[in-house]
Write a protein that binds this DNA or RNA. Structure first.
Lengths: 198, 198
DNA sequence: GATCTAAACGGACTGCGGTCCGCTTGTATT
DNA sequence: AATACAAGCGGACCGCAGTCCGTTTAGATC
């Protein structure tokens, strides 16, 4: 990985750069449509978009960075819903109900965008520190505190995050043919027990 | 990945093959000592052992397969302890205590062999179906049943397994500087709550 | 010991993610 | 319009995991 993750932030980007970014994002979506997220290679992407490989990496930093960019819309939408949307996912409902709703919606989200999320995750164990992951973690921690959990809500939020990892959810559904409703029920059971004893 | 994971099973292996396997394992341990598990490359390993690269892959199938082989001693020892060893980890203690002990020892194990385990994990989301993982899962599920949990012990065991993943534990300790005792305390809290409500 | 064959071998080869660096181009300045 | 220079560009290049296939050899059979 070199410098500059996605946008340095100093000044607008040059017009040709903006054009190429659109070209690349469009091509990437096409390729994923055709070959799946795992089937997308950076070389093919460059070729399809009609730019050099160096340009792809300049724009997105890495394959994982590209996937994150592609995910950002879906992620922003999800974040908006659990932070500002209507209850029980958004504020207004009791914390336990919000915890249940969070897991339920997150599971549904993973089933829709999980392949992409998995491709964005790959390798690197700082994946727990990407902004989105930090946000979910804080959200869960806050809900746990509101629910009255006093013993190390931070670590408990970590454990709950682990349960919702795309990799495991997809494995349960795709390999073990677990019905999503069953996942949701188990999540409800888990958070109820965690939040229950004060 | 090609054919033959580690040993086909039909008949003993040829003497030259056995010799090369020992050569490779010795060289691998040396290299990991010198460069860490992440620093070991299959090419370097072949060179150090004085064999061709093809031979390395014939023996171990993949980099992950090699790491699993290297781990197998440590894993077998751990398995023996929680299945047949003295309580509270082994049989004899009440299930809740065994659950607590399992997490505690597992966390300690990860801190000792975790880098190797991480290298064995990489990619492939069938990593949840390797024999060792299946065994832990069954063990946790059994303890949960014994503790009286009736609502979907299988999925609850999956969730508890997720909490003990090497990747997350190492991240918590190495990046966030969480003391191992704090991890153990949080695990105890978690399993107590899960096993508590009947 | 000669013969035979399946197993094992080795290293060139492929395709990937990612980097490097000399060249080009957009844009601000005058 | 000419100048200047940072930003952007492209593709040769690197190191890696993993594959392929022609060659060698262990060891069983006679």
């Amino acid at each position: 990985m070199s410098l500059i993750p996605i946008r340095p932030g100093l000044g607008p980007e040059r017009r040709d750069a903006a054009r190429n970014r659109e070209l690349l994002l469009r091509a990437a979506r096409e390729l994923i449509e055709e070959c799946g997220a795992d089937g997308l290679t950076m070389g093919t992407l460059a070729q399809r978009a009609g730019v050099g490989k160096g340009t792809v990496f300049r724009r997105f930093g890495s394959r994982a960075g590209l996937m994150m960019t592609l995910l950002s819309d879906a992620e922003a939408e999800f974040q908006g819903r659990f932070m500002f949307g209507p209850p029980p996912l958004g504020p207004g409902a009791p914390p336990l109900e919000r915890l249940v709703a969070f897991g339920e919606k997150r599971i549904a989200w993973v089933l829709e965008f999980g392949e992409l999320a998995r491709a964005a995750d790959v390798s690197a164990y700082n994946r727990f520190d990407v902004p989105a992951a930090v946000l979910w973690h804080r959200h869960l921690e806050m809900l746990l505190r509101e629910a009255g959990l006093t013993t190390d809500p931070w670590l408990m939020a970590t454990s709950l995050s682990a349960v919702l990892e795309p990799e495991r959810i997809l494995h349960a559904v795709r390999v073990h043919h677990i019905a999503p409703e069953r996942l949701v029920a188990s999540w409800r059971d888990l958070v109820s027990r965690v939040a229950h004893g004060a």
